[in-house]
């Protein structure tokens, strides 16, 4: 049980971190969108966010976690 809690905590932390670093923070306008193999960063962000929501849904039944 303890390991499960730690695993869930780690997953949530990574998802929260990716949400912040890809979608929050100071925005620089009129500049470059990084692209790799014709998949630009905005699309990469959307994919990661969809994954985040799905994983969060799976985690909903877990106990309260206070950890980063």
């Amino acid at each position: 049980m303890h390991d499960n809690v730690i695993d869930r905590s780690r997953d949530i932390t990574i998802l929260e971190l990716l949400d912040r670093v890809l979608n929050k923070g100071v925005i620089l306008t009129g500049d470059i969108v990084i692209s790799v193999a014709d998949v630009d960063l905005v699309y990469l962000g959307v994919k990661l966010m969809l994954s985040s929501v799905e994983t969060m849904e799976q985690l909903k039944s877990g106990k309260s976690i206070i950890e980063k």
Binding site: V21, L22, G25, L28, D31, I32
Partner: peptide, 27 residues
């Protein structure tokens, strides 16, 4: 790569007041 970027911001935030830039901020 996104996590490496975030790690830099995390380390700096422990020592300085900062505003994180969104990943992909390039000039």
């Amino acid at each position: 790569t996104a996590m490496e970027y975030a790690a830099v911001i995390e380390t700096l935030s422990k020592h300085f007041i900062l505003l994180p830039m969104r990943f992909g901020s390039v000039m």
